[in-house]
Amino acid sequence: MRRVACIALLATLVASACSSSPDTEDRIPTTKGAPTPGQEVFPVIASSEIVVGTNRLQIGLIDTNDAPVRSPETTLRVAFVGPGDEEPTSKSTMSFLWTIKPVQGLWVGEAFFGTPGEWEALIEVVGGGYDASVGTTFEVKQEGTTPQIGEKGPGVDTPTSSDVADLSEITTDSDPDPRFYELSIAEALKAGRPAVIVFATPKFCSSQVCGPTLTIVKDVSRRFPGVNFVHVEPYDLDKVPEELEPVPAVTAWGLPSEPWVFVTDGRGQVAGKYEGSVAPSELTQLLRSL
């Protein structure tokens, strides 16, 4: 009898010791945006600032092996359903754009959202061997923190080459283009020319998206001698890597993340803004139009 009680007690102890398995308590799966079983691709909304009005929306696709899909022949036909709506109220056809060929690319398109709240994207993935329907949800805010298209960019006295003995004091770019450090943001906005302002940190952000952003803009800059270019390190270089403190320009421009690229026209008004990545073709097209 005692033996039975002892075994029962042991069984209870073992069972309770095993009760916090990694798949239950320690690893808590979320169902948010969970893929539909059997779907070929998983959509990821790659824009963090989506606001009421017209947006440049970026969507990435991940395949069943969790690898990014790179397929220029594939088009996304997206229908957007607003909060409380049964039917889509806006649509967008999104094309694939290489940011770094053949490594990095996303589907980019204009999308209009009339109200804030949680929206649903119903995405038809067609072409390039794909024929799938997938969906995801995302948040639309009433307004963003970065300057809106048409707004004047905040004039900030960012450091220039004339303020330092060596460019390494104001840039982490290992091969800096002096042209990007001749003017402060404030000077570039008042110069009466279009300007491209790049917030990026090549050294402290060396991912496939972040690191090459400045390189992409530098490449494009060679075709536009009449445009001013300004590179701003988002973190205070006197404090990194111990402290990642944003510089005043980051706060003034309301950046939620990095990198960002802004294009302003000859009046200093924002003509385009790109979060995360910008395709050379997009930047070239906009600069030609100014």
Binding site: K32, G33, Q58, A67, P68, V209, Y235, P246, L255, E258
Partner: peptide, 30 residues
């Protein structure tokens, strides 16, 4: 894989990884 995990940021922890950089990972599927 087939699972998703919502992970909260602890405001008392100083991460070596800049959180402003998370979106670059999302955009680049890194």
């Amino acid at each position: 894989g087939d699972e998703q995990f919502e992970i909260f940021v602890d405001p008392d922890v100083t991460y070596d990884f800049p959180l402003a950089h998370l979106n670059a990972h999302r955009a680049g599927a890194e």
